[in-house]
Amino acid sequence: MSTQTKAIISWIVTFIVMLIITMPGLWVILSGFRPLQEILAKPAIWIPQRLTLDNFYAIFGIGETQIAIPVLAYFRNSIIIATTSTAIAIIVGISGGYAFARYRFKFKDTLFLGLMLSRTVPGIALSLPVFIVWARLGWIDTQFGLILVYVALNVPFTIWLIDGFFRQIPKELAEAAEVDGCTRWQAFWKIEFPLAKSGIASAGIFAFLTSWNEFALASNLTRSTNSKTLPVGLTDFIAQFTTDWAGMCAMAFIIIVPALILTFLVQKHLIAGLTFGGVKG
């Protein structure tokens, strides 16, 4: 009986904690489906009276209430910038992580430390210098400019994470493959890469989420539909005297969904512990 009580209590505690953690997110999503009057009503209406898709219609310019926000352009920019910068960060991360894990070279430790230290500088502290340099180079308000910034932001992290995964793979596996007839390159692709896949996927999802959600740098470096990303686009709802909270929440929902879907898709890689049954336990 007492174990059952314990189980019930732990469930209740878990539920409360989860509620606290997820409340803001849930409230944002919920608000995306409620009319503005209801969101702003005083006293607050806790239980939604009416759910509607009007906010979404408005954002996309369907129906009577027009909010001329180029969501599609922002969405496109976000997708291009986040996926491209993630892909580059992953490629650099794999090569760098592998090199750090497997090879010896001069200044290896210094270089690694340098990479890690670069993570200690808050991105926002760099926004002004980056802005000045980018302005000189004509990269302000370009997708390329933002991609470059995000690659720089993510690479130290992807290298560090992927290095750790390659380190866990005994180097005898690649050696066995070489003896079995593989070139160095084949040994990497057929043996080491598949084994580090979950690490690479983790690094990828983190890099993607960082780029997808980043606001501070993007708001400095973008101007127009050329390069504005979804998080920056959110500020379009803030006019001089009013803020369209309902529209903003609807758009926040649009930002969250792809990130959620992606996380679900790769989550089995994120939790999959590598089983190194190939070597003695």
């Binding site: 066995a176 003896v179 070597v279 003695k280």
Partner: peptide, 19 residues
Amino acid sequence: APRDRNISMVFQNYALYPH
């Protein structure tokens, strides 16, 4: 390279491909 020597090797930790 090892692949061109027509040898095979058994490692102490066996080095079986885990996947």
